[in-house]
Amino acid sequence: MTTMAHAPTHLSEAASRSKVAIWWFLASEIMLFGGLIASFVISRLGGGAQVDHSQLNVLVAAVNTFILLSSSYTMVEAFACAARGDRRGMRMFLAFTVLGGLAFLGIKAYEYTGEILHGFTPWAGTFWSFYYTMTGLHALHVAIGVIANAALCVGARLGTERPYRVEVAGLYWHFVDIVWIFLFPLVYLS
């Protein structure tokens, strides 16, 4: 056996493997957040977890939503640059994406601090239990995405040599965005 045993012979093979894998992974993630969100919705319908609007700051959360959605746009641009082989452009847009993620986490931390200081802790009632668990699990996913995107930004060669890596990180990032698009109206607006 003189050839490399399972090294992908073509970039496209490795790309399709990674994409198939991330889609299956995201399918299981949909079920994870789906289970949590469905529990919240059912609890609300049953009267258990009534939304406490007195403490939630819709304006801050709306700004945060805007930031996170914009970071999805910069992620798309980063992939477009990677596919063209434009390393500088990819780096710049990935840096914007990372900044967007960090800003989101910072604002979320600001919100948490205010709520906790007013006594609305995770054990202050069923709604707050759900609120912290759902947004906390989401924030954890954002943090993981920030780390992945930062790694691609620092080791930019990883991305331009194999653009599918940026695409895979992007698919994950968009997923994290979409989860927030469900959480924002469910928690803040309804």
């Binding site: 993630e29 949909i30 079920m31 994870l32 949590l36 995770p122 239990s129």
Partner: peptide, 24 residues
Amino acid sequence: LLSVGPLIAGAVMLLMDRLVGTGF
């Protein structure tokens, strides 16, 4: 893959009940 997600969510909630003091 498609069924374990809700139980992971449940396990997180149960662990929060035990460790943080939530009331799921």
